[in-house]
């Protein structure tokens, strides 16, 4: 187990190194300097700014400095908002995104699994068709269109929920649902096919012929085994929620990290773009590691600390 963890953490650090390097040089290649604007700065001031931010150093010095800063979790200053550091921006906005993301993941998982199970139990009946129509629609309706639709129906026409911002629980509902739509549909489809497969397997027949009740067979025997593909979908789920948050937070005017990321792109605020990208990558790599560990704990067929060093 310890050996496996060390190996995985090593791989995460290596991936991070690649990501930091790629984003650093991509942003260097981007057109325009950080102080390019319609109003031309006097050359002396620009010179001084460059000196202050270390932008007149040779590229490799800047790169090594950036690596050193990242290693101690310092993402540097924002160029567009000089009073703020990228760390400030991240610390301020992450709580909103976390709440929204957690809510969306909860909705996607609970309703997705429920729909999939219902569809499998009512195979080729009305319940199955309804659930699968919902799932195909969910995959085909992009989250930003879902967001506009929800805003229009529930906030503007029915006036039932707030249209934007993020102040109370009621504010979180529409964005969370919009964010959850596509992954929910994916989970429902995954759950349905894996449940169908499990329900036709021999040990379910055995359980039934032993005289176990329908309930015990469905929930204790079938569901526990059928849920494995959904668990392995948790990694892509986190990715979907994270990238989805870019548009959803923008549409609902939520001051989360996704919104800050989009803002920094519009402003061409390169340090913020780099910092948030690195932060997103750390978040993703860690959550994928956690998912793999959970998978190993739940599924006895997979040994995390297997003989071959967890291969």
């Amino acid at each position: 187990m310890a050996k496996y963890l060390v190996k995985r953490v090593g791989f995460i650090l290596l991936s991070l190194f690649f990501i930091v390097t790629i984003t650093f040089f991509l942003m260097q290649a981007a057109p325009g300097g950080p102080f390019t604007s319609e109003r031309q700065l006097p050359p002396e001031i620009e010179q001084q700014l460059n000196e202050q931010y270390g932008l007149d150093d040779p590229l490799h010095v800047q790169y090594i400095d950036y690596l050193k800063d990242i290693a101690v979790w310092d993402f540097g200053p924002s160029f567009k908002y000089p009073a703020q550091s990228v760390n400030d921006i991240i610390n301020r906005s992450v709580p909103y995104s976390l709440i929204l993301g957690a809510e969306a993941i909860f909705i996607a998982l609970s309703i997705g699994v429920l729909l999939g199970v219902v569809a499998a139990l009512k195979h080729n009946k009305f319940g199955d068709y309804t659930a699968m129509v919902v799932a195909v629609l969910g995959i085909s309706v992009p989250n930003f269109i879902m967001a506009a639709l929800l805003q229009y129906v529930f906030a503007m026409q029915m006036d039932a929920l707030p249209v934007a911002r993020f102040d109370s629980f009621a504010h979180t509902l529409l964005p969370a649902v919009a964010l959850a739509t596509t992954p929910l549909a994916f989970i429902a489809r995954l759950m349905r096919s894996s449940m169908l497969e499990v329900l036709s397997s021999d040990y379910i027949k055995t359980a039934k012929s032993k005289g176990l009740s329908h309930r015990v067979v469905t929930y204790k025997h079938a569901l526990r085994n059928a849920i494995m593909p959904v668990i392995s979908y948790l990694g892509p789920l986190v990715v979907a929620i994270l990238t989805g948050s870019f548009v959803i937070e923008k549409i609902f005017a939520i001051p989360g990290l996704g919104n800050e990321f989009v803002e920094s792109i519009t402003n061409r605020d390169y340090t913020v773009i780099m910092g948030t990208t690195v932060f997103f990558s750390v978040l993703l790599l860690i959550s994928i590691l956690i998912v793999d560990l959970i998978y190993g704990l739940i599924d006895p067929r997979i040994k995390v600390a297997g003989k071959g060093g967890g291969k």
Partner: peptide, 20 residues
């Protein structure tokens, strides 16, 4: 694998920022 590990949309966005 290295390219696959990065979220697709994030990479596309970063590239679009850099390219005209």
């Amino acid at each position: 694998d290295i390219l696959y590990g990065l979220p697709y949309l994030l990479v596309v966005i970063l590239l679009m920022v850099v390219m005209p």
